[in-house]
């Protein structure tokens, strides 16, 4: 190859420059700025860890972290288990109902989040649709799902089940029928087929679905903001409160770094599962 002249180099630099500057400006700069802010001390004397210490010692802050983690873990487990069952049904039954569900299950993804949340509210609030139906039968059923973790979790499941199902269905569809039929042929019963064939062959994609659900829910804002309670609150809402109501920019910055670290744990798991190809997965 010919050696590049300084003119070509300049040209390449000029071509890259706009996107580089844009990236620096809107991604790198705020990140650095946030990290720097999070380490400022309250008396302005320089570097300190006091906001991090606060996040992990303050009663309310810790409470919010455990509250968030609780909701996220239940959301992850719930949506993965339900999605897996749904995906098994869609992959292994051949009926009109399963075909219908197969085409419909992604629809909730197309409804804007806020619209879906308000729609759900009209159903689940204590004077909502469920309550009115129960009153037709002379009862007064109050679901009690508003302003607490249950409502948020329910809403999260609504958003995440379609997504996780999509990934797991794709994974199960990639398992050839002959793999499953050969297993039955040599004497494996349904449970054996599941634990020895289907689960190991789809495990990686389940991990991927889990990490995505985890990440998107750690930093959830809309749902907990609209149907969450006042205390405890999820980290996304807590962050906004510190930022816009109390103008506590340092604490808000430290909170975003912490949320970022939580997300990166699952990002690391994701990258690890993706990079670590088992020998049988290599082409």
């Amino acid at each position: 190859m010919e050696k590049r002249t300084w003119k070509t180099n300049l040209f390449i630099a000029a071509m890259i420059a706009p996107s580089l500057i844009l990236t620096m400006g809107i991604i790198i700069y705020p990140i650095i700025n946030t990290i720097v802010t999070s380490f400022r001390s309250s008396d302005g004397s320089g570097f300190s860890l006091e906001y991090y210490k606060f996040i992990f010692t303050d009663k309310i802050a810790v409470n919010n972290i455990t509250y968030t983690m609780g909701i996220v873990i239940v959301t992850v487990m719930g949506s993965i288990v339900i999605s897996y069952l749904l995906a098994l049904y869609l992959r292994f039954t051949d009926s009109k109902i399963s075909k219908f569900i197969g085409t419909m299950y992604l629809l909730p993804r197309f409804i804007p989040q806020l619209v879906a949340v308000y729609a759900m509210i009209t159903v689940i609030r204590d004077t909502g649709l469920l309550n009115r139906i129960s009153r037709l039968f002379g009862k007064d059923f109050r679901p009690g799902l508003m302003y607490n973790a249950k409502g948020i979790t329910l809403m999260n499941l609504w958003f995440n089940i379609p997504f996780a199902t999509m990934i797991i269905v794709a994974s199960l569809s990639a398992i050839p029928d002959s793999v499953i039929e050969s297993a039955r042929d040599v004497g494996a019963k349904k449970l054996n087929v599941f634990f020895k064939m289907i689960l190991p062959l789809s495990f990686k994609d389940v991990m991927i679905a889990m990490t995505f659900v985890f990440m998107s829910n750690v930093s959830a804002f809309t749902t907990p903001y609209v149907i969450g309670g006042n205390n405890p609150i999820m980290l996304g809402v807590y962050l906004r409160k510190q930022f816009s109501e109390y103008a506590n920019y340092e604490l808000a910055a430290a909170l975003s770094v912490v949320m970022f670290l939580f997300s990166s744990v699952s990002a690391v798991i994701y990258i690890y599962t993706n990079l670590k190809e088992k020998e049988w997965e290599k082409v």
Binding site: S178, V179, E181, A183, D185, V186, M197
Partner: peptide, 15 residues
């Protein structure tokens, strides 16, 4: 008491 062999993808890929 039968055993079948298909045209392909008979073996379990993860084993």
């Amino acid at each position: 008491p039968t055993s079948i062999v298909f045209q392909n993808y008979n073996l379990w890929p993860h084993m």
